[in-house]
């Protein structure tokens, strides 16, 4: 790959951390042809973006900020037009997005504008015999598809938390270009922030999920306390059963009809481990299960399990984690 375009994300003028993963993935593609390829990282914003200076470290040759007054919030149509134009004029061989809420929305628009195929939410990529081969989990991770992409450019989005950022220092030269595009017909009027500091289960490095074993909605405070002990790195997820019962919002659901997550540490509390739940978390790096039933299927996928009363175990765990971070 001689040229790869990495599409970054920012919110409120601050680069989102998932952008490091995008540059890392893009760098892998660029290096596949013997290290000669370049990675241009592009971010769309209303003005300067904080955090872009670190991208050289992850392998960006150039960091381009495309500015437009409409890019203060996500402007789907304007962003798609600007990126497609950039991809065309820069004659890139590949365009790499993150499979975040924004990335999954933007990538298909760009691919359709370019008239090329797209592989979303991929977990691995390589170049074999001149073609890009990606791994795309299907059936909620119950099978993996190996896809061959032969378009120019190849367009992919990377599943968050999978492409661990690695240091591959390049120049990271900054460039700012004001672009003139119309914001489009679809306009973000407002962004309602979740509670301060709340992480999304899809992106958090640590996810603590609860199921029916919690007995009632109010008991999720036990898990929230454990999440808090990790100092803002953990999010609280939920099984389908408790989401269907209205105990937790759908945005917290992990599993086949919820989110597929790949955190560093996944702690399943009071979740028996229905196949559709396992599908959503089996790619976590380390899985811990806490359940009163020692025969619960969750223990089959867990690296470490504790059998017993979660209402005794979780507070103790919270206490120990606090000590570590104390």
């Amino acid at each position: 790959m001689s040229g790869v375009l990495a599409v970054l994300e920012q919110r409120d003028g601050v680069l989102r951390k998932v952008s490091h993963e995008v540059v890392t993935g893009a760098r892998r593609l660029a290096d596949a042809s013997g290290g000669a390829g370049t990675v241009d990282a592009v971010v769309l914003a209303a003005g300067p973006v904080r955090g872009t200076d670190a991208l050289g470290g992850f392998g960006a040759d150039k960091v381009i900020t495309l500015t437009n007054g409409a890019f203060g919030t996500y402007a789907p149509e304007g962003c798609a037009t600007a990126i497609a134009a950039r991809a065309t004029s820069g004659r890139y061989d590949a365009v790499v997005f993150t499979a975040s809420a924004t990335g999954k929305d933007l990538a298909p628009r760009v691919a359709a504008k370019l008239g090329v195929a797209l592989a979303q939410d991929i977990t691995d990529l390589a170049v074999e015999g001149g073609a890009v081969i990606v791994v795309h989990p299907v059936y909620a991770g119950k099978a993996l598809l190996k896809l061959k992409l032969t378009g120019t450019p190849v367009v992919v989005s990377l599943r968050p938390n999978v492409f661990t950022p690695v240091q591959r220092p390049r120049a990271g030269a900054a460039e700012t270009v004001a672009v003139e595009v119309s914001a489009g017909r679809v306009r973000v009027k407002q962004v309602k922030a979740a509670e301060a500091g709340a992480l999304d289960v899809g992106e958090a490095p640590i996810v603590i999920s609860g199921g029916r074993g919690l007995k009632e909605p109010a008991n999720f405070k036990v898990l929230e306390a454990l999440a808090a002990s990790f100092g803002g790195r953990a999010a609280v997820g939920a099984s389908r059963a408790v989401v269907d019962a209205g105990w937790r919002p759908h945005s917290a659901q992990v599993g086949q009809t919820g989110k597929t997550v790949s955190p560093t540490l996944y702690i399943a509390v009071g979740i028996s481990g229905a196949i559709q739940h396992l599908a959503g978390m089996r790619t976590s790096k380390v899985i811990v299960a806490i359940n009163k039933d020692k025969d619960a299927p969750i223990f089959k996928v867990a690296d470490y399990g504790i059998v017993g009363d979660l209402f005794e175990i979780v507070p103790r765990l919270t206490e120990e984690i606090r000590k570590l971070h104390g």
């Binding site: 090329v116 299907v138 299960a289 690296d303």
Partner: peptide, 23 residues
Amino acid sequence: GRGGGRVEVVARVPPPERKEGRI
């Protein structure tokens, strides 16, 4: 695009087994 192309399925494989954990 500049090179047309498409998505083609090369293989469909089961996910890697997780190694047996422990209590």
